[in-house]
């Protein structure tokens, strides 16, 4: 087994100076700070479903302790791309991933890499809150139990729920069904469940698209807190959300083959969020973020 997939790198830096770029702040120069650590390196990544390309030629680096947003119109392959990062696509029959996809320098699709080990380090939160049909406590304790985490489970549950800003709302009903929670609370429970297994990266595929604005705001706040300890990749179709929470943004779009017989998603532009939203290099990005298309 490879070192990074089986054991945690010791002394993960949590106090690294942040690259903080808010829209309008024009902090482009900060991006050249040398101590940014790459968690993912993608080079020429493509995904096919039954031989049909859904995403092609994606090359981008994703950095530690940042929020990286993937935006773009529906069907451009955002979910497909994010699901490559923790090998959820392995579950889809006939889905194939090509290209170089490294996690902390190690090939994520290497022959000796077990997808189960991958998912222990790289967690995922889905579009629709999907709590297990169990109590709130069991939802959070499930992951730690399965991976054989040691220590007091009650403590783990409390820590995870506090981490997801849900503890105060549920501490008196831990043994009640998770289905009794509101949609926003369910999604925060899913986040708690995810951080309970202490991953290094959290992937979120449109985590707020089923939620009201207040719940969405809570989860956005939470993301800003979580990135102190985790690297976050988020898919969103809400551009304001990308602008509010992310450090970097990749804009994806559907591209057609010259004969117009086939089409696939592709990253048009990837840069600091501030730049993407205020001064994009590509006209198509400009059109999309300014609301002219999409």
């Amino acid at each position: 087994m490879y070192a990074t997939m089986s054991e945690r790198p010791a002394g993960k830096a949590m106090t690294r100076p942040r690259v903080s770029v808010r829209p309008g702040s024009r902090g482009v120069a900060e991006s050249t700070k040398p101590d940014l650590r790459r968690v993912f390196e993608l080079q020429g990544v493509g995904v096919t479903y039954s031989g049909v390309a859904a995403v092609r030629e994606v090359s981008m680096d994703i950095y530690e302790n940042e929020v990286t947003a993937l935006i773009g119109p529906s069907g451009c392959g955002k979910s497909t791309l994010i699901r490559c990062l923790n090998r959820m696509n392995d579950l889809v029959a006939d889905c194939e991933v090509v290209g170089k996809l490294h996690y902390q320098g190690e090939d994520l699709y290497g022959p000796n890499v077990d997808p189960v080990q991958v998912r222990k380090l790289i967690g995922m939160v889905f579009q629709k809150p999907n709590p297990f049909p169990k109590s709130i406590r069991d939802n959070v304790a499930f992951g730690p139990k399965m991976i054989g985490q040691e220590g007091d489970l009650d403590e783990v549950v409390e820590r995870a729920l506090r981490g997801a800003a849900l503890w105060d709302e549920v501490k008196d009903r831990l043994d009640k069904s998770a289905f009794g929670l509101s949609g926003g609370q369910q999604q925060r429970l899913c986040i708690a469940r995810c951080i309970a297994v202490e991953p290094e990266v959290i992937l979120m595929d449109e985590p707020c698209s089923a939620l009201d604005p207040i719940s969405t705001g809570r989860i956005e706040d939470l993301m800003l807190e979580l990135k102190e300890h985790y690297s976050i990749v988020i898919v969103t179709h809400n551009m304001q959300q990308a602008a509010r929470v992310s450090d970097r943004t990749a804009f994806l779009m559907v591209e057609q083959s010259p004969d117009e017989r086939a089409s696939w998603g592709r990253v048009v532009e990837y840069d600091l969020t501030g730049k993407i939203f205020t001064n994009p290099a590509d006209q198509r990005t400009e059109d999309y973020v300014s609301g002219k298309v999409g």
């Binding site: 923790n86 959820m88 579950l91 189960v116 080990q117 998912r119 222990k120 380090l121 967690g123 995922m124 889905f126 629709k128 999907n130 709590p131 297990f132 049909p133 499930f142 992951g143 399965m146 991976i147 899913c190 469940r193 995810c194 297994v197």
Partner: peptide, 15 residues
């Protein structure tokens, strides 16, 4: 049993 339950479990690193 909804697929989302399976996905949720697998995404946590369960076998």
């Amino acid at each position: 049993v909804p697929g989302s339950v399976r996905e949720g479990s697998l995404a946590l690193g369960a076998t």
